[in-house]
């Protein structure tokens, strides 16, 4: 039946017209909500308090560095899922000078030794499916700057 219809000269053009018209009308309605791409970001319901995270960095006697992530309205888990619920649960990505360094599945994480110099370490909260949790002002993250002196470099 469908094959017979599609074999008519104008049928493919009309079918395409239906498809493209529907998409041209529906897409602006869908996109009107704005919002960041759902493939990368998870927005929490507005009724939930927005999570916060603060970082503290402590040197260890071995020369390594330990980060403590003090999170509010957020719980850490090492359980990853394919599609996360919109709840404040997950882990954090640790970013060192713009490059992902590690994933923290608990509030305390060892990031190893750092070379002498100034280092900016950030923790970005992620959902259980690794999507970045989105707050009202963008990503939810905390940062700390570590100054590693020459003699205490540890590397």
């Amino acid at each position: 039946m469908m094959r017979r219809i599609l074999s008519r000269p104008f049928a493919p053009v009309l079918a395409l017209a239906g498809l493209l018209t529907s998409l041209a009308v529906a897409a602006p309605i869908y996109n009107a909500g704005g919002g960041a791409p759902r493939a990368v970001f998870l927005e929490l319901p507005a009724r939930l308090p927005e999570p916060e995270v603060a970082l503290r960095a402590d040197p260890l006697p071995s020369g390594r560095w330990r980060l403590t992530l003090a999170a509010r309205h957020f719980r850490f888990t090492d359980i990853c899922v394919l599609e996360a619920e919109a709840v404040p649960l997950g882990h954090a990505h640790i970013v060192h000078d713009g490059v992902k360094l590690a994933a923290a599945y608990a509030p305390i994480v060892d990031i190893g030794p750092l070379p002498p110099g100034r280092h900016r370490i950030e923790a970005v909260l992620r959902a259980q499916d690794h999507r970045a949790i989105l707050g009202r002002g963008g990503l939810i993250k905390g940062a700390v700057v570590i100054e590693v002196p020459e003699r205490a470099g540890g590397v």
Partner: peptide, 20 residues
């Protein structure tokens, strides 16, 4: 056929998961 293709487009909108 035009209506069916349009309906198909709307179904895709409705079923698109938050896939990554």
């Amino acid at each position: 056929s035009s209506l069916k293709s349009g309906a198909a487009a709307l179904i895709i909108f409705a079923t698109a998961p938050p896939a990554s």
